[in-house]
Design a protein around this nucleic acid. Structure first.
Lengths: 346, 346
DNA sequence: CTGTTAGCGCTTTCAT
DNA sequence: ATGAAAGCGCTAACAG
């Protein structure tokens, strides 16, 4: 006999409900699962429903899972998605989609370590999850453990190294939208770029999505016959480097607007602009990417092209549940969050 | 026969391993679980271990759980902990502690809605989790569903409405530490407070932990015979209100240091100070609470008393796993993160 | 239309 | 020291 934990106020079982209602367990199971193919007489069904209610029966999902070899449970593995401000939205979206399909989610973090990832995948598989969502901030990856052939899984915010389903923000169109936002406000010849250059060879280190973002920027500019007045590459898209780069930029350049490659960069740009006594947006407009936590908090609030994290998480789970398979890329539109950092040039 | 999902590349079972090794399933189970009380001959064990390896056997945790009525799985329910910058650390700490005990975590969000919470608890119970962690940003709560008597659970970052185990930051000592940080730097008579007043009746709306934070501030000040030069209450601890309050404060008061009730307030204070052409820390020192994402990013980086989220999450699952029960409060020390926003008064 | 039963994969008691 | 078998709670096939 298994030594059940002391706290186990034993739950009511199907058998007890059956006894209470004077019917068989099979019958109870049918009504619990609302099985339409099995006709239980209204009278009996009534008795069963009543017994379920009075005994407060709830089905034991572990037992059902063993029987059905399907657990109504998904796995969610990320390098650090649950920690950084960045992208907890993916989790939230995935959670909601799962919940609306009566699924729950087991989560695990890998901290980017292949060994931890291996353990996470195995633990999930041992628990017989119905599918796995892989999320990450890096854009390329190799999975440490092989999944069973045909096992449902999806990548979010990262390119898979194998042919697989992946859900990504549409950075190319996002990049175009950022430029368009500025053009629509009247800017043209004096737009600067902080974060990278458009020069391909120097962008070797960039992630594929960052590369697409740049391409979108470039595409929209050149399609109007425009070029950036100056491009400031920085090693990491972090505030302090952006701050310095911007100070340098301002020494001999007078942009009417700045495109920042992400909101952290924009934060550094804001600080440099304040130091240079330039007002946003009156003296200079700023547009950025990501819609980080910080974007709405800055003064003035930052106009930024959002990464639709929540949407991405939702779509990932839905596509996976729908049994989508093979290799495809789902591009999710990046909405522009219009805020106070853009106005016409002086 | 259950219609197993099409992807189910069937896993190897105990029975197959047994057959392969020419022994009984019981024997295999013993070696899989390293059961010391059962003596399997070295020779047989050897054969079994080999079979396990060559067949790549992994135990089916669902089946084991059914047998053992223990799932090695914990539940984590929060109002929004997985979303806000605030406190994803709790999740991370809990995740790590669970992982180091070979447990995984099922998570659910309630968005503060009792109905969603009820559903979450039931789903978790249906899945036979071994315990539940309740986390939230609000500090008071009533649980919508009753747990079975004696069911392991713990509250993190919130006071339970029932007698239970709860893990909280030690805000009282944290408050004292904040003041001490300023006193140690040489400040005394010109310290201002932004976020609330010490005046009890006006603090009715404050959460219990915020109240303790204030008490700690008050206690440390009065124990040195000091009072704040000015106290600016604000409705919500948000940047814009703090910004305005600080501008008002500076009109007729010349503090040498400001205590902010949290980092978002400090962010607003920084903005006001910049506008008033006051340099941090040379003209004015700033100390705050939480160690939000933003704290390290500000220029200069903000000295703040951290909420030890990760630690709290870790302690919560450890205490719960250790079978702690009854009503007790675990207070986790709040470490001071010394950064650049504090120096001596001019 | 309802009851009986096999069996999902595992652990553990009881014989041998 | 090892094997046989019961049974965790459930679903689905089949018998009645």
């Amino acid at each position: 006999m298994p030594d059940s934990p002391s706290h186990a106020t034993r739950r009511v079982t199907l058998a007890e409900v059956a006894r209470h209602a004077g019917v068989s367990v099979g019958a109870v199971s049918q009504v619990v699962n609302n099985n339409p193919s099995s006709r239980i007489s209204p009278a009996v069904r009534e008795r069963i429903v009543e017994a379920i209610a009075t005994l407060n029966y709830r089905t034991n999902i572990v037992a059902r899972s063993l029987r059905l070899s399907s657990t109504n449970t998904l796995g969610f593995i990320s390098d650090s998605v649950t920690i950084t401000r960045f992208a907890t939205g993916i989790l939230r979206g995935a959670l909601r989609a799962a919940s609306s399909q009566n699924q729950m989610m087991l989560i695990a973090e890998t901290e980017g370590d292949p060994e931890q990832e291996r353990r996470a995948v195995e633990s999930l598989l041992d628990r017989q999850v119905d599918g796995i969502v892989f999320a990450a901030m890096k854009n390329r990856r190799s999975r440490a453990v092989d999944l069973p052939l045909g096992f449902p899984h999806v990548y979010v915010n990262l390119l898979a190294s194998e042919p697989a389903l992946s859900v990504l923000p549409d950075d190319f169109e996002g990049g175009r939208a950022a430029v368009r936002t500025l053009l629509d406000a009247g800017h043209d010849a004096r737009i600067a770029l902080v974060g990278a250059t458009l020069d391909p060879p120097r962008n070797a280190g960039l992630s594929p999505t960052a590369y697409r973002r740049l391409s979108g920027l470039s595409d929209e500019m050149s399609s109007r016959g425009l070029t950036f007045i100056r491009e400031m590459p920085i090693r990491n898209w972090e505030p302090d480097l952006a701050y310095e780069a911007t100070l340098e930029l301002l020494q001999d350049t007078y942009p009417s607007a700045i495109v920042c490659l992400n909101d952290r960069v924009a934060f550094g740009v804001y600080q440099a602009l304040a130091e240079a006594r330039l007002k946003v947006p009156d003296d200079i407009s700023v547009v950025s990417f990501d819609d980080d936590e910080i974007a709405a908090t800055l003064r003035p609030a930052l106009t930024t092209v959002a990464i639709p994290h929540e949407e991405m998480g939702r779509i990932a789970v839905e596509t996976m549940n729908d049994g989508m398979t093979g290799s495809s890329e789902v591009l999710v539109p990046m909405p522009v969050r219009m805020r106070g950092s853009v106005c016409g040039p002086r």
